[in-house]
Design a protein around this nucleic acid. Sequence first.
DNA 1: TTAGGGTTAG
Length: 702
Amino acid sequence: MFAIQPTTLYPKPPVTHLCGCVAPSIHSGKDVWTRHNNIHINGRRRHQFNDASGVTTTSGYWDRNVDMDELLSSLAGTSNEAELHAVMSLYSGRQLSQRFMTSLLSREPDWRRSLAILDWMHAVASYRPSVFAYNVVLRNVLRARQWVLAAGLVDEMRSSSPPVAPDRFTYSTLISHLGKSGRLDEALSWLQKMEKDGVSGDLVLYSTLIDLSRKLRDYSKAISLFSRLRRSGIRPDLVAYNSMIHVFGKARLFSEARSLIQEMLDSGGDVRPDAVSYSTLLGMYAEDGRYVDALSLFNDMMSSTSGGDDQPPPHLDLTAFNIMIDVYGHLGMAREADRLFWSIQRRTGARPGVVAYNTMLRVYGEAGLYGEAIHLFRLMERTDGVQRNVVTYNTMISIYGKTLEHEKATAVLREMQRHGVRPDAVSYSTIISIWGKAGKIDRVAKLFQKLRTSGDPAAADPVLYRTMISTYERVGLVGHAKRLLRELVEEGRLLDDDAAAAAASDDNSGVPKETAVAILAEAGRVEEATALFRRAVNMGEVKDVSVFRTMISLHSRHGRHANAVEVFEKMREAGYFPDTNTIGVALNAYGKIRAFDRAESVYREMQDEGCMFPDRIHFQMLGLLGAKRDFEGVEALLERLEGDPSIDRKELGMVAAGVYERANRLDDASRILRQMCQGGNTMTPSAESTWARSQSSSSSSS
DNA sequence: TTAGGGTTAG
């Protein structure tokens, strides 16, 4: 369906159409292609050339040499497909080699132009584009978020005869881009196609999927994938390890995370923890408030100064120091932070960057060392040549907030604008909260109104709204706060009716429905959030998976299980892939409304789509089958799960026994427990089941 | 020549 048909997709205009504007220059032996020497082939004199990367090429395939940079800039000057093809057709008589074309492709970042070059290779020069050529175009198309076109490209590769077999780069590129934009289900369906094509999932692909699950905050799936990777006999490399350190940290499995570093150290040398390994773990400790653990890890890092010289060890780098300045700050050890900051260059060999300055600034501010903060703020740009950014200014605004100098805070806001740094939602919410505390409510209202009418994207920020609402509430203007929420709903409605007009006039003042839903949900306005959410879904305006997630957990928290199920099914219809936590909440909701069959089909379908569940989802399904009193189903699932080596048998036995106990079938329960004892299971709990326990103890569901 | 990992501000 998406076969590239240049003649129909991009009709070529007459060349005269372009006269004088995009004529390519033809050089002989200049720039990219430098003349090397003369040789004879079949009795005819040819030139040999070295291209920029030193590859030797024989001429004669071109009647004259074409300067690739010139050609690229001619292409860059075109504005539509027709012009592109016209430029390319000027070269059509020139028999540019396949390699020249491929090289041209790899340097063209624009998706339309790279697609046109691919077409041109196909149709005009009759070259069969290589997998590499396709991969480069695919990358560009994906960067432009042209999902349908991307899928079409890969389908074309697979279906052309003979097929241009997509390789692991093709699939990794496709899957990682799809996943990054939250299209995990599409990503996983391509994973299945890949397996069908006999392209084996390799290390990079697994680590792409792991990191993707992490970005979607689905840590249990990432852990599942990691154990699947290990089961298939692939040894993780440094990047995969580091990704998993991040995942374990996010899942609050710190001993697992730390043991990965130990595993690398014990592995015999081929994979050694690097600066990223350590600073990932440091960062995870810091994020969870485990500052003492961070400190002890940092001491380990400092003491393992791997021998000799005055060279700093490679795992002590600027990022680690940045994190530790932050950690010292949180521990109230501003002096130590200060010492660390000023020792960065000596101990890491790197000059402190803007992040180090920003962090130090905040630490000074929190310690009440305002003089030092102001001094550093001046010093960084004037003396040390480190450009202030929006975080720098926001930190400084907040420091003046702490000193209750709202005029100075306002002055910093103006200063940043003068210096061409655009205030963002953080800047505004900081200044609003400062003005609010100073009683300058009229100023607050005026600024907020201005933001909303000017169409500043910062106006659509949920935290900014929350700040506004709590500012109004704090000074007793509860009516104003309520009005804000009401306007949010109404604005959502306005966007419905005037969507076309707003798009045309490019005036998108107002809050996207997604944001409005999130704000309403956060404010606990269940009815309004639900109504607005329904409209947003019907208009296809919900683009962010997290809104579905928010709504599902909102309903679940309020015991509205039918609504939770409704949202969950809409999410599936819209093609989004729920994370495993959401699946858990949904299965629970299905159980509450006794829709066991629907739960079962969700469970089955998601696995068919290639979803890896963590143990607790399987256990939940066992529980549902038990509640349905489908004991044949329980036994069948039990048998299947027993065959899965990644599932902890002991825990499975306990869960199954519990299911029978609750159904008052004590004979079956004791049978299971007996079988378990006979099995003599000595298995230690896996990371997955540890995670499952930590989740079930903190979750309110079931 | 094409795919994967770490830090700061409300």
